[in-house]
Amino acid sequence: MQFKLIINGKTLKGEITIEAVDAAEAEKFFKQYANDNGIDGEWTYDDATKTFTVTE
């Protein structure tokens, strides 16, 4: 399945899409990606669109 991350950071904005087995695997990848890029904010997930959003 495809999952999307929308980044609304103070210094980094954009979107990335990955293939993952389930939402838990996608969330783990996205949170590591955000951590690696210094993004720390509020997370939301929309199951209907398979979209995670992080907002700083």
Rank of each mutant, 00 (worst) to 15 (best):
E25D: 13
A34F: 02
L12H: 09
A20H: 05
A24H: 04
K4T: 09
A26K: 00
E27Q: 15
W43I: 15
G9E: 09
E19H: 11
T17V: 12
L12E: 06
E56C: 05
L12T: 14
G14R: 13
G38F: 14
T53S: 13
A24S: 06
G14C: 03
N37S: 07
T11H: 11
K13W: 04
G9P: 05
G14S: 09
Q2D: 14
D40T: 07
F30K: 00
F30G: 02
E25A: 10
F52Q: 00
W43K: 00
N8F: 11
G9F: 12
T44F: 05
G9W: 13
N8M: 04
K4F: 10
K4E: 02
Q32I: 11
D22P: 02
K4A: 07
V54L: 06
I39K: 02
G9M: 04
G14P: 08
E19N: 06
E56D: 05
I39R: 01
K31T: 04
A34E: 01
E19A: 05
G41W: 09
A23P: 12
E27I: 14
E27R: 13
N35E: 14
K50F: 09
A24R: 02
G14Q: 12
N37Y: 08
D46V: 07
I39D: 01
T53C: 03
A23E: 09
L12N: 06
F52N: 00
D36P: 01
T51V: 13
M1G: 11
T53Q: 11
N8I: 06
W43P: 01
D36G: 14
A24K: 12
D40L: 14
E42Q: 07
T55D: 05
K10T: 05
T51P: 00
G41Q: 01
E19T: 06
N35V: 10
T53M: 15
F29N: 04
G14A: 10
T53F: 15
L12C: 04
G38S: 05
I16Y: 06
E15D: 15
N35I: 12
K10C: 04
E25H: 10
V54W: 02
Y33M: 05
T51R: 09
V54I: 08
Y33V: 04
E42K: 15
N8R: 13
Y45R: 03
E42D: 15
N8H: 14
E25W: 13
K50L: 12
